[in-house]
Amino acid sequence: MLILHCPYCGVDAEETELHAGGQAHLTRETVGSDDEAFEDYLFMRENPKGVHFERWRHASGCGKWFHAARCTTTLEVFGTYSAQTTAPPREICDAISGKRPGWSWKTFSARMFS
Protein backbone atom coordinates (compact mmCIF):
# COMPACT_ATOMS: atom_id res chain seq x y z
CA MET A 1 0.00 0.00 0.00
CA LEU A 2 1.38 3.33 -1.07
CA ILE A 3 1.28 6.11 1.53
CA LEU A 4 1.94 9.64 0.29
CA HIS A 5 2.27 12.78 2.37
CA CYS A 6 0.01 15.50 0.97
CA PRO A 7 2.12 18.67 0.91
CA TYR A 8 -1.02 20.83 1.03
CA CYS A 9 -3.03 19.53 3.96
CA GLY A 10 -0.23 17.63 5.69
CA VAL A 11 -2.10 14.32 5.86
CA ASP A 12 -0.30 11.02 5.30
CA ALA A 13 -2.83 9.65 2.89
CA GLU A 14 -2.96 6.10 1.71
CA GLU A 15 -3.57 5.07 -1.85
CA THR A 16 -7.33 4.62 -1.58
CA GLU A 17 -7.75 8.26 -0.58
CA LEU A 18 -5.79 9.42 -3.61
CA HIS A 19 -6.29 9.51 -7.34
CA ALA A 20 -3.36 8.77 -9.64
CA GLY A 21 -2.76 11.44 -12.26
CA GLY A 22 -0.09 9.83 -14.40
CA GLN A 23 3.35 11.06 -15.36
CA ALA A 24 4.51 14.41 -13.98
CA HIS A 25 6.28 17.32 -15.63
CA LEU A 26 4.72 17.09 -19.07
CA THR A 27 5.15 20.08 -21.31
CA ARG A 28 1.87 20.90 -22.93
CA GLU A 29 2.41 21.27 -26.65
CA THR A 30 -0.22 23.44 -28.22
CA VAL A 31 -0.75 25.91 -31.07
CA GLY A 32 2.51 26.34 -32.95
CA SER A 33 4.04 23.02 -31.91
CA ASP A 34 5.18 20.68 -34.63
CA ASP A 35 3.40 17.38 -35.12
CA GLU A 36 6.10 15.25 -33.55
CA ALA A 37 6.21 17.26 -30.33
CA PHE A 38 2.43 17.21 -30.15
CA GLU A 39 2.32 13.44 -30.68
CA ASP A 40 4.90 13.00 -27.91
CA TYR A 41 2.86 15.16 -25.58
CA LEU A 42 -0.33 13.28 -26.33
CA PHE A 43 0.86 9.69 -26.40
CA MET A 44 4.39 9.12 -25.21
CA ARG A 45 4.92 8.41 -21.51
CA GLU A 46 7.82 7.20 -19.41
CA ASN A 47 7.52 3.69 -18.02
CA PRO A 48 10.66 3.40 -15.95
CA LYS A 49 11.85 0.60 -13.72
CA GLY A 50 13.06 2.66 -10.79
CA VAL A 51 12.81 6.39 -10.13
CA HIS A 52 9.57 7.92 -11.38
CA PHE A 53 7.77 11.24 -11.03
CA GLU A 54 4.00 11.25 -10.88
CA ARG A 55 1.03 13.48 -10.28
CA TRP A 56 -1.45 12.55 -7.60
CA ARG A 57 -4.64 14.16 -6.35
CA HIS A 58 -5.76 14.02 -2.74
CA ALA A 59 -9.24 13.20 -4.03
CA SER A 60 -11.02 12.22 -0.82
CA GLY A 61 -9.15 14.79 1.24
CA CYS A 62 -8.26 18.40 0.50
CA GLY A 63 -8.73 17.87 -3.24
CA LYS A 64 -5.33 19.28 -4.24
CA TRP A 65 -3.02 17.98 -6.94
CA PHE A 66 0.60 17.37 -5.97
CA HIS A 67 3.75 15.67 -7.24
CA ALA A 68 5.37 12.53 -5.92
CA ALA A 69 8.79 11.00 -6.58
CA ARG A 70 8.93 7.28 -5.98
CA CYS A 71 10.52 4.03 -7.07
CA THR A 72 8.35 1.81 -9.25
CA THR A 73 10.12 -1.38 -8.24
CA THR A 74 10.23 -1.01 -4.45
CA LEU A 75 7.32 1.47 -3.97
CA GLU A 76 9.72 3.54 -1.89
CA VAL A 77 8.59 7.16 -1.77
CA PHE A 78 11.39 9.73 -2.03
CA GLY A 79 9.14 12.68 -1.35
CA THR A 80 6.12 14.72 -2.39
CA TYR A 81 6.11 18.34 -3.47
CA SER A 82 4.02 21.20 -4.75
CA ALA A 83 2.12 21.02 -8.02
CA GLN A 84 3.16 24.59 -8.86
CA THR A 85 6.49 23.64 -10.39
CA THR A 86 7.81 22.35 -13.72
CA ALA A 87 10.76 20.44 -12.24
CA PRO A 88 11.39 18.53 -9.02
CA PRO A 89 12.87 20.75 -6.29
CA ARG A 90 16.43 20.32 -5.17
CA GLU A 91 15.64 18.56 -1.87
CA ILE A 92 13.68 15.89 -3.72
CA CYS A 93 16.51 15.32 -6.21
CA ASP A 94 19.00 15.17 -3.33
CA ALA A 95 16.85 12.62 -1.52
CA ILE A 96 16.75 10.45 -4.64
CA SER A 97 20.50 10.85 -5.21
CA GLY A 98 21.11 9.65 -1.65
CA LYS A 99 19.30 6.40 -2.37
CA ARG A 100 19.71 5.89 -6.12
CA PRO A 101 23.08 7.45 -7.04
CA GLY A 102 23.35 8.20 -10.74
CA TRP A 103 19.59 8.18 -11.35
CA SER A 104 18.08 9.94 -14.33
CA TRP A 105 14.57 10.52 -15.60
CA LYS A 106 13.95 12.30 -18.89
CA THR A 107 15.92 15.53 -18.63
CA PHE A 108 16.28 15.33 -14.84
CA SER A 109 19.20 13.54 -13.26
CA ALA A 110 21.46 13.25 -10.24
CA ARG A 111 23.91 15.53 -12.07
CA MET A 112 21.51 18.48 -12.05
CA PHE A 113 22.64 19.70 -8.66
CA SER A 114 26.11 18.26 -8.43
Partner: peptide
Protein backbone atom coordinates in the same frame (compact mmCIF):
# COMPACT_ATOMS: atom_id res chain seq x y z
CA UNK B 1 -10.68 17.10 11.75
CA UNK B 2 -10.27 14.76 8.83
CA UNK B 3 -11.68 14.88 5.36
CA UNK B 4 -11.42 11.40 3.90
CA UNK B 5 -13.51 8.53 2.62
CA UNK B 6 -15.87 6.31 4.57
CA UNK B 7 -16.29 2.96 2.87
CA UNK B 8 -16.69 4.02 -0.73
CA UNK B 9 -17.82 7.63 -0.35
CA UNK B 10 -16.27 10.95 0.74
Amino acid sequence: FRRTRLGQVP
